[in-house]
């Protein structure tokens, strides 16, 4: 009987001695950024699809299988992915990727969060308790995220830390160049006021000096009532809003109603890599957002 157990255990021993570092990312933008830093040295998979609501991802059992064999799990954090990632971590039984483990990286800890609620109650909707978690949409936050990923990859794979550092500095140089292009392009609409569905693009619009005059959802996670929409019509008129920013996953009937009533233009923009066809990586995500806004 002992022999059988020994043979059984032998087959369980991982044979991947010189294999690539396995990285699992909660969202597509994280996976894209990790590919920039890790290059060929890492195997990256993202769990959620880019065109889905990042707040309500359905955890599939296949996520558990992926997380179980990961060397590194990178999450957005700030309670955006907590509700669907934590059961994955629990069931994966992989000690490395547990909170506090070397293979667990929470990106929300390397940026400053805004819109931190003064008081917490679900009477105010499904509020983000730590602050707005959609920080990756500020291009100025992306280098800090890239750095956190580089540091962790280097720590898990010290022999290649030089390569990761090279990748990061190359990425940063390209990113700065792109970022100044984006700033130039965004000048056209600077100072304008917009309406968005959820405070999804808070960091993006804050970066480019664009004010959000109102939200289609009356409270986070709560769909609009007709009363709220008629108030918004008033806001759009009085604040002279001419852009209604619509994400790809919420129904757009409310935006179309507002547009019909006020003549404001609807712009559907991606929020994550893969949300629309052209947003194929982290650069193209911002290219596409800015192209659509400034068209």
């Amino acid at each position: 009987m002992n022999k059988i157990i020994l043979i059984f255990l032998f087959f369980l021993v991982p044979v991947s001695v010189c294999a690539k570092l396995k990285v699992v990312a909660s969202y597509q933008y994280i996976a894209s950024l990790t590919r920039e830093i890790g290059g060929d040295l890492v195997d990256v998979v993202a769990l959620s699809q880019g065109n889905m609501d990042p707040h309500t991802v359905m955890p599939r059992p296949s996520f558990i299988a992926k997380a179980a064999r990961a060397d590194l799990l990178i999450v957005n954090g700030a309670s955006l992915d907590e509700a669907w990632i934590s059961p994955i971590i629990t069931q994966a039984g992989n000690p490395a990727i547990r909170k506090g483990g070397t293979g667990y990286l929470d990106l929300s800890l390397c940026v400053r969060l805004f819109e931190v609620p003064a008081s917490l109650s679900r009477a105010y909707g499904d509020v983000h308790p730590e602050g707005n978690p959609h920080f990756h949409l500020d291009p100025d936050n992306v280098p800090a995220i890239a750095r956190a990923i580089r540091e962790r990859l280097s720590k898990l794979d010290p022999p290649h830390s030089g390569i990761y550092t090279d990748h990061e500095s190359g990425f940063k140089a390209r990113w700065m160049k792109k970022s100044s292009e984006w700033s130039a392009a965004m000048k056209i609409i600077a100072g304008r006021k917009i309406i968005q569905y959820h405070s999804l693009y808070y960091y993006f619009f804050r970066r480019y000096g664009i004010e959000t005059a109102g939200f289609i959802e009356p409270l986070p996670g709560i769909p609009p009532s007709s009363k709220h929409l008629s108030l918004l019509v008033g806001t759009i008129r009085s604040e002279k809003v001419d852009l209604i920013v619509q994400d790809v996953y919420h129904p757009d009937d409310a935006a179309r109603y507002l547009s019909r009533e006020t003549g404001a233009r609807i712009v559907k923009i991606p929020h994550d890599v893969g949300a629309v066809e052209n947003a194929k990586d982290i650069y193209l995500l911002f290219d596409e957002i800015i192209l659509r806004l400034t068209k």
């Binding site: 909170k99 506090g100 483990g101 929470d106 800890l109 730590e130």
Partner: peptide, 23 residues
């Protein structure tokens, strides 16, 4: 085997304590 493993895991918790602020 988990206890043996635990010795490493413990260290990493300490090392990461400064990075993990929301605990």
């Amino acid at each position: 085997s988990s206890l043996g493993y635990g010795a490493d895991a413990d260290k990493s918790v300490v090392e990461n304590a400064s990075a993990q602020t929301n605990y």
